[in-house]
Amino acid sequence: MTGLTPKMPLLDVRSLRVAYGGVVAVADVDVSVAEGEVFGLIGPNGAGKTSMIDALTGYQAPSGGSVNFDGRDITNMRAHRRARLGLARTFQSVELFDDLTVDENLLVASERAGVMLALRDLFLPARAPDRTNVDWAIDVCDLGGVVDRYPSEISHGQRKLVGVGRALAQKPRLVLMDEPAAGLDTDESLALGQRLRSLPDEHGVTVFLVDHDMSLVLAVCDRLMVLDFGHAIAQGSPAEIREDPRVLEAYLGSHGTPVATTAAGSGS
């Protein structure tokens, strides 16, 4: 990944701080994500991962620090405008549009409808919507079987995938995923990992992945960062993270099992 001339980072975060009243959820964290990589963010429950995504995507005003996307300061930009710049996200609790079919969920994301489009759509002759990105997202997430269903009619795993598909249907430059593999079984999780891995290389979408599933994160990410009580305690390649004593103590040590899973996961 490392070339001779370091690329300008796609996402550049400087001393980001998120606080809810007195509770500091993210404490002065620096992150930079280069175009074309899969970046992982892990940490125990309550470490501040969701808070971080929320601050990066405009759902939570940071109490300090700056966020740059593609060389542009977006620290105080509203959520929908960040999305339009190419910064997509998924939600930990999925949050699909329950009144729309899976297909419409993706279509509405790809259209990025604004008032102008809506009014043109109302008063000018009908045009078939542009389905390029929708079909691509359906393909990437393998949603062909459920496009005409409603979110309430499909399994939890499928809903998670639709959430990912909806973010992708915007054809973003960077997609931030909040625990996309939570609640998936091992097979589903593996398949998801392969899809995520293909995103930067084959489709030009950079990935920022938050997950609890260590085998997934360690297998898929180019680089990762470990968050504990809001502090970034380690950053590096999966191999480095696996060795890092602080990480072992703060996170992996308390969960013995993930390490084992990792070994098993990478072995198979």
Partner: peptide
């Protein structure tokens, strides 16, 4: 919330 995440104002 989700609407804003797909670029809807």
């Amino acid at each position: 919330r989700a609407a804003a995440s797909v670029g809807i104002n």
